[in-house]
């Protein structure tokens, strides 16, 4: 019979290979603080350029007039909303596989950004619909998929909010996010199929004006801007989550003291 008590300590973590260096919340926390302003500035700059291209450089559309210009917000937001779900599922899955705490925190931090992007895509879609088709909401395939995507984001956030233990919240969220990611293509195609069955392709965002090169450029710049914005807000949020979850640790206590 052998029994001993080893000193409690975090010396295990130090021996991890360098690759995982920033997977520790403690090392990532200051890095995130350093990166946030850069991404924030990039977001402001790119969005300004994108909006300038969208409102002043891109030509007026023959059919829709200036109303179409909302696509410079609508389309990039829709792109980001789907992209962010995949990124969120990636982090959540990585957390499940490698058991790194930071991955789960990243996933929780991305979710609100994703939901906001989805909401923007839905809202601008409705605003676009009013002058174009005379109605706020059309059961267009893309709008409907966006709506379901919004529900998926809400489900993820509600599940995490309902679980008190952060470790369980991360893992449960990961299973849900991965299930969602398998489902999203299926949802997308079934909604598209449903749309062709019930409405025909007559009313669809696909009938948007044929893309001029400047329009595409504007949308791409805006998408980059949104991307930078999402990274910046995610980093802000992940810092808050790190502080909250690590509140018992010495380094957070020290950090809080220096803030005073």
């Amino acid at each position: 019979m052998r029994a001993e008590t080893a000193a409690a300590g975090h010396n295990l973590k130090r021996t991890q290979i360098n690759w995982f260096k920033y997977s520790s919340p403690q090392t990532f926390f200051p890095l995130a603080a350093k990166l946030t302003p850069w991404f924030g500035a990039a977001a402001v700059l790119l969005c300004a350029i994108g909006l300038y291209i969208g409102f002043f450089v891109a030509p007026t559309d023959a059919q829709q007039g200036d109303a179409y210009r909302i696509i410079f917000i609508h389309v990039p937001a829709a792109w980001m909303s789907m992209f962010l779900y995949v990124v969120m599922a990636f982090w959540a899955g990585a957390g499940l596989v490698f058991n790194t705490r930071l991955s789960g925190m990243m996933a929780s931090a991305i979710a609100p950004s994703g939901a906001i992007m989805t909401f923007i895509a839905l809202w601008t879609g409705a605003v676009w619909g009013k002058p174009t088709w005379g109605t706020w909401w059309v059961w267009d395939a893309r709008l409907t998929s966006e709506l379901i995507l919004l529900f998926l984001y809400f489900g993820f956030m509600a599940l995490q909010a309902a679980i008190d233990d952060p470790r369980r919240a991360d893992k449960a969220g990961a299973v849900l996010a991965l299930t969602g990611v398998v489902n999203i293509p299926i949802i997308y195609f079934s909604v598209q199929w449903w749309n062709t069955l019930h409405q025909g392709a007559s009313v669809s965002l696909k009938s948007a004006p044929t893309m001029a090169a400047t329009m595409l450029l504007g949308m791409l710049v805006m998408a980059l801007g949104f991307w930078m914005y999402c990274i910046a807000t995610t980093l802000l949020r992940v810092r808050r989550i790190i502080l909250e979850r690590e509140r018992r640790s010495d380094w957070v206590a020290q950090y809080v003291r220096t803030m005073k």
Partner: peptide, 14 residues
């Protein structure tokens, strides 16, 4: 569990 460390550095063999 939650905010409490119930035990740490516990080793034994049976």
């Amino acid at each position: 569990r939650g905010d409490r460390t119930l035990f740490s550095g516990l080793s034994f063999s049976l």
